[in-house]
Design a protein around this nucleic acid. Structure first.
Lengths: 211, 211
DNA sequence: CGTCTCATGTAAGGAGTTACATGATTTA
DNA sequence: TAAATCATGTAACTCCTTACATGAGACG
């Protein structure tokens, strides 16, 4: 149910087409919330039926028309209500943690590769997040500029500070993942040189595993 | 698709009924992977059809019978394969980050409450994780004991070390969340004493928000 | 002449949530 | 005698993923 609030959040910067939302959800804003086309277009239609956004068919030059959405007063109010309601925390369900807990079932090489992939994955994300923070600080982000346009300077700082804060959270998380996987590599170094008893055929391993 | 691997992981400690799995998934092991009854029983049936587990109806005394599942050789092999395959990383979609990015839309009190709830939530989790680590270190966890039973001592250390490592990851994450929310509180202190322009009625706010 | 961008979806299926349903036995 | 534990599900729904579909204009 958060997708519609993510859409309202993005649309609070100004009117957009489904296509533009889709592109933003795949690049910059996509770090905060990601969704594919196949979810966005139908959800916008549903939100229109529910009176949260208003769509208008606008001339798109030689390309015919496109549908531009903007939040209605009701949509803005629904977003604000959601922003003031308590958050529900989902229970944990992360394949990386699941794997880590049963790493004796991986081959030593696969275990090391998993940790290295984890580090590489989150290091790449940190790079992307840093770039976003830079674009926030330097006011290079198009959607942010649209959003800040017309606000008093103090409020501009405030709005930008919150965007920055969100990315700082993502960076802190990613760095925690990297540090954890590095601990994992050190742990594997201590245990992996010795061959795993779990690398044999299925029959043996059931014996070894179930004892 | 990870649920079945979580089930195979748990069953690798020894045979269990759906009911016992369900209880474990709601308490101790539930921190690593959570699932409700309504998902577990049907999934076990599907896995039996797919040949990954074998179910046997066993006498349960005066209560009639119960169905005990154990992994088949094929199931054990499928689990090992999954443990050796590369992980897929899902794209980010976290309501807490989404909110943080648009915190100018929350009332100052709601924003502070959100941060405090975040801290409380993850502090409680850290407490639970610490307890699990204690139970791993002291060999108090029933499933772990079942799993270690019969393994050479060196392997016991190894297996327990990986379980501990998984919880260390959860703890590191939770602590990163706490630190982040504390930064959030400090940020709000700087910006919130001044009233938000976004606290008026819908009409005004659309002006202010969209500029 | 081919690929990229603009523009908007459908369709099928998997994964997860929430609520409901049932009934015996054991414990406080 | 009321509540918790043992034991096993169904049903409806939402949310998300993956694959497929289409067509025009712009760019190189």
């Amino acid at each position: 149910m958060s997708l519609r609030y993510a859409l309202l959040a993005l649309l609070s910067a100004g009117p957009m087409t489904g296509y533009e939302i889709s592109r933003r959800f795949q690049s910059s804003v996509g770090h905060v919330w990601h969704a594919p086309d196949s979810q966005i277009y139908p959800e916008l239609r549903k939100m229109e039926i529910d009176g949260l956004v208003a769509g208008a068919d606008v001339d798109a030059g030689p390309r015919g028309t496109k549908r531009v959405y903007r939040p209605t007063d009701q949509g803005t109010e629904a977003f604000r209500e959601w922003m003031n309601a308590p958050l529900k925390y989902a229970l944990d369900r992360d394949p990386a943690i699941l794997r880590a807990a049963y790493l004796e079932w991986s081959s030593p090489e696969a275990a090391r590769r998993m940790m290295q992939d984890h580090i590489d994955h989150f290091a790449a994300l940190v790079g992307q997040y840093d770039q976003q923070v830079f674009e926030i600080d330097e006011r290079l982000n198009v959607v942010l500029l649209r959003r800040l346009n017309g606000l008093p300077e103090e409020m501009q700082h405030r709005v930008a500070a919150f965007k920055r804060f969100a990315y700082e959270g993502l960076i802190a998380r990613a760095e925690a993942e990297i540090a954890w996987a590095q601990r994992g590599l050190r742990l594997l170094e201590r245990y992996s040189p010795a061959a795993s008893v779990f690398t044999g055929q299925a029959g043996e391993s059931v014996e070894a595993g179930a004892g």
